[in-house]
């Protein structure tokens, strides 16, 4: 009965991102590196993809963003971003889509910033290009964005260079740039992996706030099941290009069906904090 009442909710809200049975193939050897990924994402919802390097999680994100590396192609399936079929879009339309509708942050924030331009200016640049703002308005908006990602002193950070900021601050700057054009979907691909645990918690909080405040839909990609568990409504567990388990987070955590998911969970229970912190559920 509960299932029946849930379904209408899912269908009444148009998904901002719909991935249907996407398969990605390397054109050189014809090998499939992603073997059928499907999920839909409604505004204000969070989907998590868990997997190790080589599991295909990053390739899936890249396909969604339309930035697959050379000689890789979406061999089958469909990706709809805000109702638009990505495969039907021209390169220019894809560029337009990225940033304004769908945006992303990645693992190593420093490598996405120009070391010789103040970081605030780079955020303002994004605002100028994506929103068509003038110079002064763009600066104003960039400062607002830096404040929105909870950087303590936006004016100061605006004029600083990448090497003057910590990893956590850089990731905030990149999130500011990513949400500059009010996208509806934000992909966070291992966005907290390189950060300290205490900083990671802050960034995850920030992502949760963005979701709550502006209805941003999130795709959180991580190798760590626990990171995904913090935030996500639905989880996909990937291994070797295959989705081995998919479902609501609590179901995956408490009734894992696949052996690999059980391994990930048991690792936390045997060797992680969970060993000592069985506060609920277990």
């Amino acid at each position: 009965m509960t299932a029946l009442t849930e379904i209408p909710v899912e269908t009444t809200v148009d998904p901002v991102l719909a991935v249907r049975d996407v398969r990605i193939r390397g054109q050189v050897d014809g090998r499939e590196i992603v073997k059928g990924v499907s999920f839909t994402l409604a505004p204000g919802k969070v989907v998590g993809i868990v997997g190790e390097s080589g599991s295909g999680k990053t390739m899936t994100c890249r396909a969604v963003l339309g930035i697959l590396p050379p000689r890789f192609e979406v061999a089958d399936g469909a990706i709809h971003v805000a109702g638009q079929d990505v495969s039907a879009l021209s390169q220019a339309e894809l560029t337009e889509l990225r940033g304004s509708t769908i945006s992303a942050v990645f693992q190593d924030p420093a490598s996405y910033l120009n070391p010789s331009i103040p970081v605030g200016k780079q955020v303002a640049e994004v605002v100028k290009v994506k929103k068509g703002f003038g110079r002064r308005a763009a600066r104003q908006r960039a400062l607002e964005l830096l404040a929105a990602v909870r950087l303590r002193d936006p004016e100061l950070v605006y004029g600083q260079y990448a090497h003057e900021l910590s990893g956590g601050m850089l990731q905030r700057v990149l999130i500011a740039a990513a949400i500059a054009a009010d996208p509806r979907v934000l992909i966070a691909d291992e966005a907290t992996t390189a950060l300290d645990v205490t900083v990671q918690a802050e960034i995850l909080d920030l992502l949760a706030d963005l979701r709550d405040d502006s209805g941003l839909a999130l795709v959180v990609v991580s190798h760590d099941l626990a990171v995904v568990a913090q935030l996500c409504d639905e989880v996909l567990v990937m291994r070797d290009g295959e989705v081995v388990e998919q479902g609501p987070t609590s179901r995956v955590l408490y009734q894992p069906e696949h052996e690999y998911t059980r391994l990930l969970i048991s690792e936390h229970e045997q060797y992680g904090l969970d060993r000592f912190l069985a506060r609920e559920g277990s």
């Binding site: 990671q200 918690a201 995850l204 609920e280």
Partner: peptide
Amino acid sequence: SAPTLRMAA
């Protein structure tokens, strides 16, 4: 701050 499975954060 440490992420855990059981939402113990």
